[in-house]
Computed example of a mutant assay.
Amino acid sequence: MLSSKLKNITPSYTIGISTKVKELKSQGQDIINLSIGEPDFFTPIAAKNSAIEAIHMNKTKYDAASGLLDLRKAIQNKLQVENNISYALDEIIISSGAKHAITNTLIALLDYEDEVIIPKPFWVSYPEMVKLAGGKPVFVDTQRENNFKVTPQDIQNALTPRTKMIFITNPSNPTGAIYSREELKDIVDICLKNNIYILADEIYEKICYVDSFVSIASLSEEAKNITITINGLSKSVAMTGWRIGYSASNNILAKAISTVQGHLVSHPSTISQWAGVSALTSCQKEMIEMVHTYKSRRDIAVEELKQIKDIDFIYPEGAFYLFIDISALKNKLTWSDSFSVAFSNILLNQAKVAAVPGIAFGMDDFIRISYACDTKELLEGINRIKSFIKNL
């Protein structure tokens, strides 16, 4: 009786892992959870106080489908000052998280069987979101020597008359890789030549350890016109549960996205949006401190992982993940359908460490661990991984 659309939808690996971790912890087991894709910080005080004030001021009525004017103004200013992109207010749409912003965009743009290029490794929900919107995900292999960043030739090889869009995740989840200005310009050029939209998922933009982050839409007016910039407050201001994301795009597309959202959810919680205003205008110090902490943990984790034989990893320039190559261990385990799932399950059951199998990102020779956790816990988790691999 269920919709046929669900027949090809893969359940979330990360949710499945989280459920298993909670179950094991409830049994009293000492689990080190390195699978979490969520900041371990709390939402800054100024943002929380703004939400409380909004409640007491009865700011709890319906508002514009595109989002609170004050929040869109704050985002408009952020994009201008930090990213050098000038958007009109009606080109910015507030959504219930960045995931929702992506879904709105896919519904607004895709016709049935339109193809969307998804470079591997990819964030776990991209293919399923495309399928639910009626599109067809087209996976593109990328190269380890290029830190798994997609190239114009990779894109060219995947093009068909049905290609409508490409996902560019910058910084990357799961690798932490960041595209240079030159790399992005080359991608924009081939997309302009072939009339392809770019969905620029920049949710980890603030968690950047280099000085060279470039937003795709800032490259030129032509780039801006074909780019849908996706961002939000979940990662940068530790506001995952508040569910505030946004898209910025050309006027015609923004109007379509607003129409979609207006019919499906009206708008995000007004209380969350008022918290978002303060997050963007009053919490810069907290955001900077979070990034400093992540960078320190990154450096510590990298040095520890270098000591483990038979593994390799992508050196992350952003986000808070390490994508670890475990392919050299294949002959040390018994597995059938998925090597990374088998490895992750045994790691959890024997070493009591939770990691995300690389198959969730389209790469079965890898696992992903997160350093969005206490440093002591991170070190203990890596030490357990080291012992586990040594004893295989």
Rank of each mutant, 00 (worst) to 15 (best):
E115N: 12
I369F: 07
I198F: 07
I75N: 02
F148C: 05
N8Y: 12
K206P: 01
I178V: 15
A54K: 11
D114Q: 10
E304P: 02
V214Q: 02
I118E: 01
F339G: 04
M363P: 00
A223R: 03
P119K: 11
T259S: 15
P161A: 11
N194D: 02
Y87C: 06
T43F: 08
N170C: 06
D374T: 09
A328Y: 10
K164A: 13
G232I: 10
T43I: 13
N104R: 08
S66D: 12
I52C: 08
S336V: 14
S212H: 14
K73F: 10
I207M: 09
F139T: 05
C283T: 14
Q143N: 12
E304I: 08
D201R: 01
N49R: 14
T175S: 07
A328C: 10
K235D: 13
V150A: 11
G358M: 01
V140C: 11
I369V: 14
A372V: 03
V81A: 01
D70A: 15
D325M: 07
T169R: 04
L280Q: 08
L2N: 06
Y246T: 05
N146F: 13
S180Y: 10
T14H: 03
K78H: 11
S172V: 01
N331C: 07
E91F: 06
L34C: 12
K332F: 11
G232Q: 12
S96V: 04
E221H: 08
E91C: 13
H56M: 13
K25S: 12
Q350K: 14
I118C: 04
I369Q: 01
D141I: 01
P357H: 03
L378W: 03
A248E: 01
T375Y: 06
P121H: 10
W274M: 12
I385V: 14
R368G: 05
S212P: 01
F213Y: 15
F320H: 03
I166D: 09
